[in-house]
């Protein structure tokens, strides 16, 4: 493989202007539905780019990143949600948290930091496991976090939902965060740490023989990745305006992984392309589920077709194009060396 031989490309330089252009065009067209869909896609993109920091560079599939989204989203709600009513919904919070209204951006950063700390603590154990066992351990992390949040009713409203989160996620907020995520992911990718982690992905034994500590590189990637994924989860909460533990569960795990795999598990461009592709297909299927007037007849597919179609699409991509849509390709500018 090409690790370390070609000069690094800077995918952010290619991806961000294109995304910006897409947003401007959609905004100018002025269809609320499409603009909403693109906003949601960009929020997912923050998560998927975050996921790719760990998965793409380490080659280890993570079934547990949604736990970081869950942790982040609730931590943001603790700081920003429903002033005045916070003590009613979440009486178990410490008084200082109940009485402080943190502005949304610092709140998001603090919340994502909490998720990153959890990732660091759990990661000490997880990063030492081999690839398959690490995937399973990450999944059990999701079970642990979900069980805790569902049952710690006094700070999470338990299995009910929490309404009244500030709705601050517009198209431009989502775009800005997606750009931040892409830049962070890119600089991790071209850093020495990223290179070392990809070396363990390509040839574990050779990487160790070359003096790389796989667990340390995996841990670093996991923490950065968890931070970004948590930001995505936080934005998702503030995009919906309501939180429930059940939002951050297997459906989101499946969707974000499908986006990454369909786009291409080995590149940052893949994460971006996959998110846009899957989001588009999903929106079309959703429209069909609602029913679509086509001349005199209404075309409508049964509720739930969307999930079946997505699972089939992912399987077909895996069988016929396992490298994803873009494979190893990175859109962007090459650095001269």
């Amino acid at each position: 493989m090409k690790v370390g031989l070609s000069p690094p490309t800077l995918p952010a330089a290619g991806l961000i202007p294109l995304l910006g252009l897409l947003c401007v065009v959609v905004h100018l067209i002025g269809n609320q539905l499409v603009e909403g869909a693109l906003t949601e896609a960009l929020v997912y993109m923050v998560m998927v780019v975050g996921l790719s920091v760990f998965v793409s560079n380490s080659g280890i599939i993570s079934f547990g990143h949604v736990s970081f989204a869950l942790i982040g989203a609730y931590a943001s709600a603790w700081q920003t949600c429903c002033p005045g009513l916070r003590g009613v919904f979440m009486p178990g919070l410490p008084k200082i948290v109940l009485d402080t209204n943190v502005p949304v951006i610092p709140a998001a950063l603090i919340a994502a930091l909490l998720a990153a700390v959890v990732a660091a603590v759990a990661g000490v154990a997880i990063a030492r496991l081999d690839a398959v066992a690490a995937s399973i351990a990450l999944l059990s992390l999701l079970f642990v976090v979900k069980t805790i949040y569902e049952n710690w009713t006094s700070i999470t409203a338990g299995q009910g939902s929490l309404a009244g989160l500030p709705l601050y996620v517009s198209l431009w907020t989502a775009l800005a965060w997606a750009a931040v995520a892409i830049v962070v992911a890119q600089f991790y990718m071209i850093s020495a740490h990223g290179l070392r982690l990809r070396a363990t992905r390509e040839d574990y034994a050779a990487a160790r023989a070359a003096g790389i500590l796989p667990w340390r590189e995996r841990l670093i990637a996991l923490v950065i990745s968890a931070f970004l994924f948590a930001i995505g989860g936080i934005l998702f909460g503030h995009y919906l305006g309501t939180l429930a533990v059940s939002i951050y569960w297997l459906d989101m795990t499946f969707l974000t992984l499908a986006m990454l795999v369909v786009g291409g598990m080995r590149s940052l461009t893949g994460a971006v392309v996959g998110t846009l592709a899957i989001s588009t297909v999903r929106e079309l299927l959703r429209a069909l589920e609602r029913g679509f007037d086509f001349g005199a007849t209404t075309i409508q597919i049964p509720q739930g077709t969307q999930e079946v179609a997505l699972a089939l699409a992912l399987l077909l991509v895996l069988i016929f194009r396992p490298q994803g849509i873009v494979g190893d390709y990175e859109l962007g500018v090459s650095l001269p060396r």
């Binding site: 599939i61 079934f63 992984l257 079946v308 997505l310 992912l314 399987l315 895996l318």
Partner: peptide
């Protein structure tokens, strides 16, 4: 291995859906 793992996850999601 990663591709196989993802595909079994996809089969699982397909059956549930």
């Amino acid at each position: 291995g990663a591709t196989l793992l993802i595909s079994s996850f996809a089969v699982s999601y397909l059956l549930q859906s």
